[in-house]
Design a protein around this nucleic acid. Structure first.
Length: 509
RNA sequence: GGUCUGUUCAUCUAAGGGUUAGGAUUCAAGAUUUUCAUUCUUGCCAUAGGGGUUCGAAUCCCCUACAGACUACCA
């Protein structure tokens, strides 16, 4: 084995926002690189002008940045193998295609899209599928079937042509996939893939192999959907004579829909109410927004932690990992072979874990802008205190507000279910007495309310549960929130009394 | 249709020939908190099916079923 430096690349095409699966592929590449002290590069595969979506490249950069995946070399950060955008490398690919032409590994093909369609429909009529290969290429229009004069004339008459790979007739191609073991394909079932398009751009297959070679990529880690094209790529390395520096291949299992069949798509997120993108994305033409984990209030480290455990596991029972720990622990050998169903619930759980680990002050800082937005006058001190009170029951900063808004403003309605459950005939009278009791209290702090209050209720021989729940209903409007005496302390004595009396007036049995 | 890949609780997964098949999430129940939540305990729940190989199989082999990916001048 050579001591080659580990260099991996994440090579998305800018055809839309990066989704979770893409982020995970990037993450695994990154972790693998960092584990081995190697480089992680970003290469933009924009060889298809027709599908180019503006803004996507920036999105990809920003998303990786948010995730804490740092790019060693890329279009924005540069590097010794620049440019990292395939459209800017356009001129480079031509000579490699020609090299293949000269060595007899490729040929010109002049079939028009219409002719190809015709061949396909004809084959279909016979219950077969058309494959451009050793069997059929003799009948097609190309530099193998036509006489030299004919095709050279076509070539010089500026007829549109493509360059196709001359797939060997019947050859077993075996290659090792680092997580699946060795996989064998027979070339008889493969077709003569287009390497160079009539628009002067290479296809993915050519560009990918050429760039990986030129950029000295040591390991190709990509999604499982690429597994079927591995033999073509291997054959290309052989045809170029680059076999001894060929990268090792690894195909990652897919991320599947939470329910039903198939791989995770944007629609699943819409349907089940969870984001499938790291960042918010607004469709440039329809303006339709797609939710992002960042905007939904997930912490990037929680998001990454969740993604890392989707398809990979450390073999221990540890579930919470920092990026540094992941870099340390990650191995491709421990990546599973089978597709993993995405679980939005567990994603929330991961966020909760990171959420409760944050200090009250950190959460307070995050909460403060939200309070301002709600038009509430509160300082950092208050935001911190409130965060500490309710964080255990929250997954997101926005939930702090949901769990504590009544500390800033009186409830405007009362949960009907709780009313019918708790607000019995004798309750209003109790509440009135309690309000008088509270009004008379001299010290107003949670412990100094709780003690005399408990004695008072006991003395009255009231049911504690009834009293507490009814009181809660008056103060917060429902049956949730932090400790009642803490609430009393924060909203203050007079507000407490006001809310109880308001409740007595408003709540109907 | 063809090729390739896969299949352990509802979900993520551990166990790389020998364990009562372990953990986590979700859900449910109980305890605690005379309120809310936390917390704790418990429960439910799995080796797709069938054949081999073996003293012994979730693990190795074969078949079947199911699932997924791919099958473009898209990546």
């Amino acid at each position: 084995m050579s001591e080659r430096k580990v260099r991996v690349r994440f090579a998305p095409s800018p055809t839309g926002p990066l989704h979770i699966g893409g982020v995970r592929t990037a993450l695994f590449n990154y972790l693998f690189a960092k584990k081995h002290g190697g480089d992680f590069l970003l290469r933009i595969e924009d060889t298809d002008q027709a599908r180019y979506v503006p803004g996507t490249e920036e999105y990809i950069q920003e998303a990786l940045e948010w995730c804490g995946i740092t790019i060693d070399e890329g279009p924005k950060q540069g590097g010794p193998f620049a440019p990292y955008r395939q459209s800017e490398r356009k001129d480079l690919y031509r000579q490699y295609a020609e090299q293949l032409l000269e060595s007899g590994h490729a040929y010109y093909a002049f079939d028009t899209p219409e002719e190809l369609d015709l061949a396909r429909t004809k084959a279909e009529a016979n219950g077969e599928t058309f494959t451009y290969n050793a069997l059929s290429r003799g009948q097609m229009k190309n530099s193998l079937s036509l006489t030299g004069e004919t095709w050279q004339a076509l070539l010089s008459s500026s007829t549109h042509y493509v360059i196709r790979f001359k797939m060997p007739d019947n050859l077993d191609v075996t290659e090792v996939d680092l997580i699946r073991g060795s996989v064998t394909f027979n070339t008889a079932l493969l077709d003569d893939k287009v390497l160079f398009k009539s628009d002067g751009m290479p296809t993915y297959h050519l560009a990918n192999v050429v760039d990986d070679h030129l950029m000295e990529i040591s390991h190709v880690i990509r999604g499982e959907e690429w597994l079927p094209s591995m033999p073509l790529h291997v054959l290309l390395y052989r045809a170029f004579g680059w076999e001894n520096t060929m990268p090792r291949f690894t195909h990652l299992p897919l991320i599947l829909k939470p329910e039903g069949k198939g791989k995770l798509s944007k629609r699943d997120g819409d349907k089940l109410g969870f984001p499938v993108f790291p960042l918010l994305w607004k469709d440039k033409v329809t303006g339709e927004p797609s939710r992002g984990y960042r905007e939904d209030g997930y912490f990037p480290d929680a998001f990454i932690n969740m993604l890392a455990l989707l398809g990979w596991n450390p073999g221990t029972e540890q579930e919470i990992f920092s990026m540094a720990e992941l870099c340390e622990t990650f191995t491709l050998e421990r990546v599973g072979k089978s597709g993993a169903r995405f679980d939005p619930e567990k994603t929330k759980w991961f966020n909760h874990q990171y959420f409760i680990k944050k200090s009250d002050l950190e959460l307070g800082k995050l909460l403060l802008p939200l309070l301002k937005e709600k038009g509430v006058a509160a300082d950092l001190n208050m935001a911190t205190k409130v965060s500490g009170m309710v964080k255990e029951r929250c997954n997101f900063v926005s939930e702090i507000w949901e769990q504590s808004y009544f500390l800033f403003q009186a409830p405007v309605s009362y949960d009907e279910k709780i009313v019918s459950k708790r607000w019995k005939d004798d309750v209003p009278a109790m509440m009135v007495e309690i309000s008088i009791f509270f009004e008379a209290l001299e010290n107003w702090s949670a412990p100094l309310i709780k003690e005399p209050f408990s004695e008072y209720v006991t003395g009255k021989q009231w049911n504690f549960g009834t009293v507490m729940n009814s009181l809660r209903l008056c103060l917060v409007g429902g049956s949730f929130g932090p400790d009642i005496f803490d609430i009393c302390e924060i909203i203050g004595q007079s507000e407490t009394v006001i809310r109880i009396r308001k409740g007595v007036e408003t709540i109907k049995i």
